[in-house]
Design a protein around this nucleic acid. Structure first.
Lengths: 214, 214
DNA sequence: GTCTATATAGGGATAGAC
DNA sequence: GTCTATCCCTATATAGAC
């Protein structure tokens, strides 16, 4: 593995573990047993490392987000879909730890992050509309807008919320299923009784057997 | 006004405007036309300023949060209630801009912040249970738990979400009503048609006439 | 490509005069 | 209480040898 790539991998690891603002270029170099000078031979500055990591994240995420408007999907498919999104966020969770701190330094990242948010919200809206089209749920246009905003918001901030909630204990929870459930539960009240039971069944399947993010 | 208090007021202003990590003790001193030495005569360090601001925030917030379990309350009362909570958060919005960065340095603040989150969630749950008791809504115990978590999460991160969403334009939106609506809309799908119409009416009243936070 | 050594800059904080 | 001057530390980033 080339040094340049090792820098990216090590940076991502440390950023996720300690938070990007708490990781210096020297920390990264030390962790890899190379000199800081060497690191700066491969990257002009820390921002370039972050940008490159973000680039990889964006490609991953936009790929996963391709909204499943296929009408043949069931509750379990949606669960898996949201799970995949959570896994990508988990892989790059340093971005969700204090997004404002990271984004405010770099306008390009702001735009990219917002584009991902747009996509998230669009995906939620699409799914809602498919369900509506199937008469699975009944919802007005305005309600659907607000609902998809709430879904995108929960999906975006769940890891941050969990992190703050577990700050006393120094172990970070790597159980994404609770977040998936939390996101999907936004839809629950719109579902008919059969739909809710189906959701409960799917939740029971996944909530016990924590599969973790690795 | 005593210098000590002026330091607190100025710090709060700058923190809210620029974000706490971007404001140095020198910035604060400059803004007040005093010397950094003077500032350090009144406060041992920056953390002490933050802690004291947090203290004031906590008292405000816990006071406002006293959950209104009075069964005589209507939709407009709940709207006002959530609005008051948003106003307190707005006054100390720097805490919601980079929560992890601010909290990770100080265990006491972690506990306090989480206590406020607990209170928020409890308040949401209480209101839901009152509504359930009045047969206004029908909801299971587990659903109520998840719902109140989602409500607390949205209330906590709405300002952050808005901030990121408007990062391109350099004007920060000070319209809290959208956030209030977003929070209350979590309840909407559980309401009977009359309840939803009532909510729409209340929303119409407030959403137009942005009252702002100042 | 990699190293050592170092420049640079900024922020937190203190000392001591007034 | 307030000021000026300054110290210390840390993080980013560069220079130049190997």
């Amino acid at each position: 593995m080339k040094t340049r790539d090792r820098i990216l991998v090590t940076s991502l690891e440390l950023f996720n573990l300690c938070g990007e603002p708490n990781v210096t270029t020297i920390d990264i170099a030390n962790e890899m047993d190379i000199s800081p000078g060497n690191l700066y031979y491969h990257f002009r500055n820390k921002d370039e490392i972050i940008s490159e990591l973000f680039q990889a994240f964006e490609e991953n995420m936009l790929d996963v987000l391709q909204s499943p408007t296929d009408p043949g999907l069931d509750m379990m498919d949606y669960w898996m879909y949201v799970h995949m999104i959570f896994e990508r966020m988990w892989d790059y969770r340093f971005l969700y730890r204090d997004p404002v701190t990271i984004l405010e330094r770099n306008e390009k990242l702001q735009r990219k992050f917002n584009r991902i948010l747009d996509k998230k919200q669009d995906a939620a809206l699409s799914i809602i509309q498919v369900m509506e089209g199937q008469s699975l749920i009944s919802i007005s246009r305005e309600e659907a807008e607000r609902l998809s905003t709430n879904i995108a918001l929960t999906a975006t901030y769940w890891l941050n919320f969990q992190h703050i909630r577990h700050m006393g204990s120094n172990s970070e929870p790597d159980d994404l299923e609770a977040g998936v459930y939390q996101v999907i539960s936004h839809i629950a009240p719109y579902l008919p009784p059969e739909g809710r039971e189906l959701l409960d069944a799917v939740a029971d399947t996944y909530l016990g057997a924590s599969s973790s993010g690795g």
